[in-house]
Each structure stands twice: as structure tokens, then as C-alpha cells.
Nucleic acid binder design. Structure first.
Lengths: 337, 337
DNA sequence: AAATAGTATCAGTTGGATTGATGTCAACGT
DNA sequence: ACGTTGACATCAATCCAACTGATACTATTT
């Protein structure tokens, strides 16, 4: 048999009280139980942990070595117990989520950061993949939640709409279209060179699909795999590009890029949260979903989540929600008026 | 009942194999045992750790949170076990020693440092006290070993002689006696001012006792409680002092102070190692005692333990001892000839 | 529909942990 | 010197948690 928690507990009690008898009282056990448990532990560890002269027990060097270590271990266990036991209250655990490119790069990092700051015992891992892979991972249970753009067609999943993202034409502030307030199709199309994502990107596909018969007018000068590279290229004047507002709002706010809506064309697309149909929803998952809901409800979908104070106001909102949901536990209301 | 090591072990096995059945094979248990243990753990922790769809078990967020923590705990336990179990081989534990002033300040720190560097799993705490307190602490078992100067008169203790320390007269290099090779009594006594330790110091007592009838000739200009202060005072020319070689060898080697033996008078005193009569001698204690023995045997008692390369040669000697004592375990001899 | 391969659960057994009683030893008081 | 006290160790008996073997249940595969 191996060494036991109980044995460590008993060992610590004896070491601290310096007596088997006192320890037994503290532990509400008989003296003999303590004595035997201690003996057993000493057996397991191949030698005594105390020096015994007459009626006194004193830690020897091995015991002194063991004492802090065993205390540390028991503390850790106690921590685990309290954190995992109190599903009420603390939000704890490790959530695995997957997200498609735009969301994963430009939205979730901020949200995850904010969420984890508010719940230190929680941890969220994110994997950025394409929509299909995301579906698969959520369907097989390897991920708890997915955040995607495209439509879903796996029936083991349920998808709830999150918020709408909008695509826009971006040009550098020195571009000849920078002065315009909208992008007109097909007029402006002819005179523009384009920087595109490589095939397989949701953003690029939507763009060409929406263009329909005008798609043939696209003069593509560069294709690249990374959104950041596209932004850099556009910024340096290579051409225009079609990207999600989420990806470029920061640069637009700073004035480095200009965003043009396309006249007469709805360039919005729905973002979805997907989860397994019959997966049990844990406290942490529920909390994160609620957080995401608040984000969506705040109409911040169309605003820049990367700017600190908008995120801040978001957190306020979330916290208030949190308070009100806790007020059922008897805490007083916060009425500052 | 509380959560168990075994449960954590089983939990880890299941998490890693992703199956109760596979885990049960790995653990050499029945499938039902594993299933029940897992169920019990989930009970203890107030909720599931896995998502169960059909025949597959997948960690949920709580489980993912628990997994690394429980692994860490089991590792710690395994460490404790191996370190404390293999009394053969590794020297581990925490040794409490007490030492009187001179030894504690000028000898043991170096030895302890060297020893702990050679035995990373061992730790030695030292307390510097007077001889009487040292006796008491060792007698009551609050300390494992004592290193003292005076004679011992508690019969629960055994004292073994360690090495001889020598007292010498120290003067600054610019002192009028600095050119002499010895200190002559009583001639030189008349013309010298003295810096002394306050009463209660072993060193000061020995000096006056040895002087006997000449003690009245001492012109004491300063008394101070700290050896370092005495050295500083002597260095700056206030007067001469009588101190242990151990305390001043470094300054003497550097030429900052001059040491004069007293002509025709044996100024050596015995240093002792004391331990409780019937305390069990653990591996660590034995090892440290052997180390101290080597130090004494090296005749280095009269040399400066603070100088790096002397300590180095000491370590070599100790290591060779160590090798030869291990050769009984079947390792080949080291014969480099 | 049957076979397969996994999990959960039940009743029975075993062994470690606990108890209560007893033995032993050292410290202390008379 | 002797008995008393207060501590630890040990023994036999008990109890309960952990394990086994069998069975029921469920999802997947054929």
C-alpha cells in the first residue's frame, strides 16, 4: 500500500502538538489509531520521523524535511476541494474553445483576457481554426465552445447567433478613394487594385459571392494568408481590401486606414456560438456564455473591442448582471441614488 | 470521507487513457473499481469531471482544471517517497544544530554551505548561542548537534572532541609589537592597551584565566560585545586583543592584522561536538558528522577555513571518503595509477 | 437485428483503519 | 524505595471503504 492523505494529516497533527495523545484529541481519534497510523507512515517511508525518548516525541531531520512538504500538499488538496466544491460562487475550471480566424484574432483575445481577470480560478484556452475544423472539434467534444462565421450543418451541434459582423472596403488614408464616403459598385471597382486573402478564407469567399457577376472585375495584385499582412499592404498603398470591421477598427480609429461601406449592399454576416447538443453546461461555461451575450447585447459588435474603455463599460455591464443574479443569495442591492 | 490519493491516481489514469476500461488495465484493477472510484471522487468534488456521451469519456472544464493539479500533487508525493525511502544513497532531511559564538560565526557557515552544496536534499539550520544554552537545546532534543567550546556537564549528552582552536594576541600591522615574533609575558603586557569582549564570553574568560596573577596588569580601554567590532578597533590601532585564530585568520592572511603567539603559554582550547546520548543517528546526521571529522582530521583546524581553495581541498578529501564508503555497494575502485 | 465495446451499478468479500483494552516505560511525588 | 501518573506501543476485535465478479444498460458497429 502507498502513503495516504490521512497519514500525512495525522503526521502533521502529531508534529504540531508534539504528542500522539494531544494529536488524537485534535483529530477526534483514539490514541492508538494515531499511533498506528504514524507507525505505518514511518514504515512506508522506511524509517522513523520522530525521536522518541521516554514520553516525548520530537521531529528528527527526516520528519522536519517531511513536515513543510506534507503541509504544502494538504493545502493544495484543500484548495482543490474548496474551489471545485463551491460551484456556487467561484467560477473555476479550464475551458477549451475554438474560433475561426477573425473572431479568434480580433475579438476573443480581449474578451478572454477580461474574463480571466475577473475569474482568476478560471482558464480559457483558445485554438484558431477554420469553421469546419471548429465544428468537428466541438462535435467530438474536444472543445467546449466554438465561435464561427459560417453556417453550421452538423446536427450534433446547436448554434446560437452571437452578433453581426460587417465587412468593409479598406483603403489607406492617402488612397484616391479615401475621400469618398461609400464604395460604389461597379464604378469604383474598375479603378481599384485588390489585396486578397488566399482561398479558403470565409471573408474572401463572402466578398466574391456578394459581388456576384461583378467579381470578374476584381484586379487582384497580391494574395496573402494573413490578415495583418493585408492591412500592412493596404496601409502602404498597394491597393484596397475587403476585411471585417473587427479586424480593422483599431487602425480606422487611429486614422491609419479608411473604411468605406459598399453602397447598396448588405455586407453583414452572422457570427455564431456553437456547442454540443447534449453536453452538460458547467458553471464556467454558462458564465462565459453569459459574458459573451452581454458583449453582443451591448451593441458593441460594431464597435472596437480593442479600445480599453469600451471594454471597460462592457465589464461594468457584466458585473451589474452578476450582482443582480447574486442578489438572490441575500446580498443587499446597490442603489447609489 | 475525504478525497484520496488513490482517487487522484485513478482520475489521472482515466483522463489520460480517456477510458475507464483502459485505465483499469493500466492500474491492474477491475473496470468497476475504477468506475466507482471515479464516481466517488466526482461526488467528493460536488460534480462531474468528465462529459459522458455514449461510451466516451471526455474531460470537462473542471476535470481539466483538476488534472494538472493532481498530477503535481502526486509528483510531490512520489518525490517525498523516493527521497525519504532511499536512506541508502541520498542524504536528505533538515538538521538543527547549535553552535557557540566563534564556531558559529567563523567555521560552521562555510562548512554548512559546502555540505549543503554537496547534498541538495539536505538542509541545515544553525542557531548561535552560548555553551550553556547549546547544552540545554541538545539535551532536550530541540537541536540535533551542538558545537561548543566549553566543558560539558550534562550527563544526557556525549561530547566528542573535534579539533583544537588556538587563541592569539592580535595587533594592527602598525602596532609597536607588530615587528615581534611572539608576545612575552609579563614584559609586553605593561605597555599594551586591550580591547576585550564583555563578560560571559568564553574567549575572554580563558584569556584572563590563563594570565592568572598577571591578569591585574591588563589595561582595558574598550569592551564590546561583538568580535567583529573588536577586530575593527584593533585594526584602527586602539589596542591589542586576544581572539581565536578562527576569527582572525582571514585578516591575518590579508595582512591587515598581525597574530602573535604568547611565549611559553599554551593558548589552545578544545572544541567539542555534543549530541544526545540516546538519540538515533540518522543518515544525514552521520554524514554531517563524518564531514566534520574530515575537516578536523585535515589539520585544517589551525588554518583558515574561509579561504576558498583550502575548503576545496577539504571537499576533495571528503568526496574520496564518500567514494570508498560506497565501493562496498559494488562500485569499482578508483585507482588512477 | 445482432454483435461489440464500452460504462454504471449491485451484492459480496477483503483488508486497512479505527477502537478499546492492555502492556510498558519514564518522570514525578511521597 | 515505591507507587502514581501520563505518555506511547501493541493486540484483538470491529467497521467501513475499496475491490471483485456478475449483471444491466447504452451507444456504436456490422
Amino acid at each position: 500500500m502507498a502513503i495516504t492523505f490521512r497519514q500525512l494529516e495525522i503526521f502533521i497533527a502529531v508534529a504540531e502538538t508534539q504528542q500522539v495523545t494531544r494529536a488524537s484529541k485534535k483529530l477526534i481519534l483514539t490514541q492508538s489509531a494515531v499511533s498506528m497510523a504514524l507507525g505505518e507512515l514511518e514504515n512506508q517511508l522506511g524509517g522513523p520521523l520522530f525521536d522518541r525518548h521516554g514520553r516525548s516525541l520530537l521531529l528528527n531531520d527526516r520528519g522536519r524535511y517531511l513536515l513543510p512538504l506534507s503541509k504544502a500538499i494538504l493545502h493544495q488538496v484543500a484548495n482543490i476541494e474548496t474551489i471545485l466544491t463551491e460551484q456556487q460562487g467561484v467560477v473555476a475550471g479550464v475551458l477549451e474553445i475554438v474560433a475561426s480566424s477573425t473572431i479568434g484574432n480580433y475579438v476573443l483575445p480581449y474578451l478572454i483576457g477580461a474574463f480571466m481577470r475577473m475569474h482568476p480560478e478560471a482558464h480559457i484556452n483558445m485554438l484558431v481554426v477554420n469553421t469546419m475544423t471548429a465544428e468537428k472539434l466541438v462535435a467530438t467534444g474536444q472543445a467546449d465552445l466554438g465561435f464561427v462565421e459560417g453556417d453550421i450543418n452538423v446536427d450534433a451541434l446547436i448554434a446560437t447567433s452571437w452578433f453581426e459582423d460587417e465587412l468593409g472596403i479598406i483603403v489607406s488614408s492617402t488612397h484616391k478613394l479615401a475621400g469618398h464616403s461609400t464604395f460604389k459598385i461597379p464604378e469604383d471597382l474598375k479603378e481599384t487594385s485588390w489585396v486578397m486573402r488566399e482561398e479558403g478564407s470565409g471573408t474572401a469567399e463572402i466578398f466574391t459571392k456578394k459581388l456576384g457577376r461583378h467579381a470578374s472585375l476584381l484586379k487582384v495584385v497580391t494574395k496573402t494568408g494573413h490578415t495583418e499582412a493585408i492591412k500592412k499592404a493596404v496601409e502602404s498603398g498597394v491597393g484596397a481590401a475587403c476585411l471585417s470591421m473587427l479586424a480593422v477598427c483599431r487602425e480606422a480609429e487611429e486614422g491609419w486606414l479608411k473604411i468605406l461601406p459598399i453602397e447598396g449592399m448588405d455586407m453583414s454576416r452572422q457570427l455564431w456560438i456553437i456547442q454540443h447538443k447534449d453536453k452538460i453546461i458547467t458553471r464556467l461555461m454558462a458564465e462565459f456564455l453569459r459574458f459573451c451575450e452581454v458583449v453582443a447585447a451591448s451593441h458593441l459588435g460594431r464597435e472596437c473591442l480593442a479600445s480599453p474603455w469600451k471594454l471597460q463599460s462592457l465589464l461594468e455591464k457584466y458585473k451589474i448582471d452578476q450582482e443582480s443574479s447574486r442578489s438572490s443569495e441575500g446580498s443587499r442591492d446597490i442603489t447609489d441614488e
